[in-house]
């Protein structure tokens, strides 16, 4: 403990089930992205992955991603990991802006992270909002529309006079683009830890050094 009463302690913030889901999800995500690009921007002269292979790969990976998603939702619900997804309503916008200001300005000035990980909240406000949206809105949408494209019989026959697959296809594509943008940002933010690889290390080991101060004595677990 230092004179300010701040203690640092390594705690298990990323349990095994979460790490397994995270890395399998990362693999599926990458393969889905590549095969999705191959299917949508299908070009006989410049295929990223051949159409027939991409189709099978996309379907199989989509299925595994769905299974992983269900695994995450159930495990997150049953474990105490769900606490990290409960937004803090107090000063909600101000906290978001503070984090955004850190990314836009503070990080270049060498300031410390405004919301370091604690036992009760490992995400900063922007991370939390993003993950909440991704896990509980964006992923369900891409999974449902994906299954509609995989099994077109499940899609409505017509919507507004157009083939029922159209809205599903457009939504699937747009959400895919949003997830690709998230993917780029997520991979980049891996590098903003203490060192370039510290974030990857914690996601492999599950341990993270968090600050435990007098005000958060309950965090001494």
């Amino acid at each position: 403990m230092n004179p300010d009463g701040i203690t640092k302690k390594k705690v298990m913030l990323y349990p095994l089930w979460l790490r397994l889901w995270h890395w399998s999800n990362a693999l599926m995500f990458t393969l889905l992205l590549l095969s999705g690009i191959s299917l949508h921007f299908s070009d006989p002269d410049a295929p990223v992955i051949g159409f027939a292979t991409a189709r099978v790969l996309h379907n199989v990976c989509g299925l595994f991603l769905t299974m992983g998603f269900v695994w995450f939702i159930v495990a997150n619900w049953l474990s105490d990991n769900l606490r990290h997804y409960r937004p803090v309503r107090q000063n909600f916008v101000a906290r978001l802006l503070k984090q955004a200001d850190f990314y836009a300005r503070g990080i270049f000035l060498g300031q410390s992270h405004p919301f370091p990980a604690t036992w009760g909240q490992k995400f900063n406000p922007l991370q939390q909002m993003t993950y909440l949206l991704i896990m509980y809105l964006v992923l369900p949408v891409i999974i449902v529309t994906g299954f509609m494209l995989w099994v077109p019989e499940w899609a409505p026959e017509q919507i507004l006079g157009m083939d029922g697959l159209w809205p599903a296809a457009v939504l699937h594509y747009l959400v895919g683009v949003a997830l690709a943008v998230f993917f780029v940002g997520h991979v980049y933010l891996v590098t903003i830890g203490k060192t370039m690889t510290s974030q990857i290390e914690k996601m492999l080991s599950g341990w993270e050094e968090i600050r435990i101060d007098k005000e958060n004595d309950h965090e001494r677990r």
Binding site: F41, A169, L174, V177
Partner: peptide, 20 residues
Amino acid sequence: YYVIGMTRHPLLDALGILGV
């Protein structure tokens, strides 16, 4: 009719490429 790889909206394609 939607045919994957064929029925593509040029604006949506541009949006995707610009976004990523």
